[in-house]
Amino acid sequence: MTLIAALTFLILAVIAALHFAWAMGLTFPAADAAELSRMVTGFKRRDLMPGKPATLLVSVAALLAGFWALMLAEWAWLPVPNWFVGLGGIVLTAVFLARGIAGYTDRWRRLTPEQPFARLDRKYYSPLCLVLGLFFIILTLGYLL
């Protein structure tokens, strides 16, 4: 379980760092904001990234989710009841599995048709969310049982 928690934290910390960098104006790995938006949001006719507050919120949420993985493995601690840690694990499992599954639905594809996002989503983003959901299932069950 400790390897899964560490890997989950590392993946989510990298995602958090990317979102933080994007909030600060970096466009890596794209050439400009319009290309980055088409790469990471995929929404129709959207040439700008979401605003700084929204992107920072995603960064903080990803980092908190990674920290939660460490709490489920009992590597980290917050002053919250044990049942709350378990509940957080269940919620994170549901969020990542739902996002992973959504990437393979027609409705999501109609909502986010822009390339290269649509291709990257099916190849990388959605599978990564499914893996993270699986990791949170394992961590949450290990914590609760």
Rank of each mutant, 00 (worst) to 15 (best):
T2F: 03
L3H: 06
I4L: 13
I4V: 15
I4W: 09
A5V: 12
A5D: 11
T8P: 13
F9A: 15
L12A: 10
A13G: 01
V14C: 05
I15E: 10
A16H: 14
A16Y: 04
A17G: 14
H19Y: 01
A21C: 15
W22I: 09
W22P: 00
W22Y: 06
L26S: 12
T27S: 08
F28K: 03
D32L: 03
A33I: 02
A34P: 03
L36P: 04
S37L: 01
S37F: 03
V40L: 13
F43L: 14
F43S: 12
K44C: 01
R46T: 10
R46M: 14
M49W: 05
G51T: 07
K52F: 00
L56F: 09
L56G: 02
L56V: 01
L57A: 14
L57E: 08
A61H: 05
A65G: 13
G66P: 08
W68P: 00
W68G: 08
A69D: 15
L70F: 06
L70D: 12
M71E: 11
L72C: 14
E74K: 15
W77V: 09
L78S: 08
P79D: 11
P79W: 02
V85I: 15
G88S: 14
G88T: 05
G89K: 09
G89H: 09
G89N: 11
V91I: 14
L92W: 04
V95L: 12
V95K: 07
F96H: 14
A98T: 14
R99C: 08
G100L: 07
G103D: 14
G103E: 10
Y104C: 07
Y104R: 12
D106M: 09
D106L: 11
D106V: 07
W108N: 02
R110H: 07
L111T: 13
T112A: 04
Q115M: 03
P116K: 07
P116V: 06
F117E: 03
L120P: 00
Y124V: 15
Y124Q: 10
Y125N: 12
Y125S: 06
S126H: 12
C129I: 00
V131A: 14
L134W: 10
F135E: 09
F136R: 03
I137A: 11
I137E: 10
I138N: 03
T140R: 13
Y143H: 10
L145Y: 02
